[in-house]
């Protein structure tokens, strides 16, 4: 546990989370005894090679898939299922193709049986912030990948959850759109004061966004290092060229490669 998580209120508390999947070739330890606290309004990135259990961790936090053992607490209450304070952002924008943009944004309200008209100003403001005002009647297929993911950000923020869980949301986008989306996310995070857990396999993305990076090792998915990002806010793309950023990238890379080598030795 790093020093800054000891004080302040933990929004999310992950207590010895473990998850075992059954496959045809036996049991896979996707997540092993993972513990960490996430502070209110903190932006935490989870980084690791594919198959390290990042997504498993996120789905456990969301309450969609139960843990094999261990507990996730949100505001000191165990998460046992989908939670109204949690909004998820998926790998691809995951818009419903048979609904136009505004109907997609109203989708959570329909499921939650809320009246979207009560949130009209908020939705409109968010659409303007992400630059989608005027596209309300467009269908997802008429929008670019970046626009679709921006729409999914609006959908998530529209009902004002206090926690956002993001599963490699910008992985499918090109590098330029990705930078743009990262800046937009930081802007939305600053304006909306959310607690964000952001899963990515891009160290650059993690360093650019995060207050703190949880570095994971593959099979079993373990927390190998908590890395506090020492970059001022607001962040600028230029920061990615600073010596600190380069060194930090190398350090995290080394941690990950070391864990992969350990795994390979163990396999061999």
């Amino acid at each position: 546990m790093s020093a800054d998580t000891a004080n302040g209120k933990a929004k999310i508390k992950i207590d010895s989370a473990s998850k075992v999947y059954e496959t045809q070739s036996g049991y896979v330890h996707a997540l092993d005894n993972f513990s960490s606290d996430i502070q209110e309004r903190e932006l935490v990135c989870v980084v690791g090679p594919s198959g390290c259990g990042k997504t498993t961790l996120l789905w456990a936090l969301s309450g969609l898939h139960p843990l094999t053992s261990g507990t996730v607490y949100l505001d000191d209450v165990p998460v046992k299922g989908p939670h109204p304070e949690i909004g998820m952002i998926f790998q691809e924008a995951n818009l419903l193709p048979w609904r136009n943009l505004i109907k997609n944004i109203e989708f959570p309200f329909e499921i939650k049986k809320l009246n979207p008209n009560d949130y009209r100003d908020r939705i409109q403001h968010l659409l303007e912030t992400v630059g989608l005002a005027g596209f309300e009647n467009k269908y997802p297929r008429e929008l670019s990948g970046g626009m679709q993911q921006r729409a999914s950000l609006v959908r998530c923020l529209s009902f004002d959850p206090s926690v956002m869980l993001m599963d490699e949301p910008f992985g499918a986008l090109d590098a330029f759109t990705r930078d743009e989306m990262n800046l937009l996310l930081l802007k939305l995070w600053t304006e909306n004061q959310k607690t964000i857990v952001f899963v990515t396999h891009s160290i650059t993305e993690a360093l650019f966004l995060a207050d703190r990076i949880l570095v994971m090792s593959p099979r079993p998915g373990r927390l190998t290092r908590e890395f506090k990002v020492d970059l001022p806010r607001p962040r600028h793309l230029d920061m990615q060229m600073t010596p600190y950023f380069m060194e930090a990238t190398k350090e995290i890379k080394d941690i990950i490669y070391a864990s992969i080598e350990v795994e390979q030795h163990a396999d061999g």
């Binding site: 969609l64 995951n94 989708f107 499921i111």
Partner: peptide
């Protein structure tokens, strides 16, 4: 993914 989306809203 779409079913998970809807389920995440309960």
């Amino acid at each position: 993914a779409k079913i998970a989306l809807a389920r995440s809203y309960g």
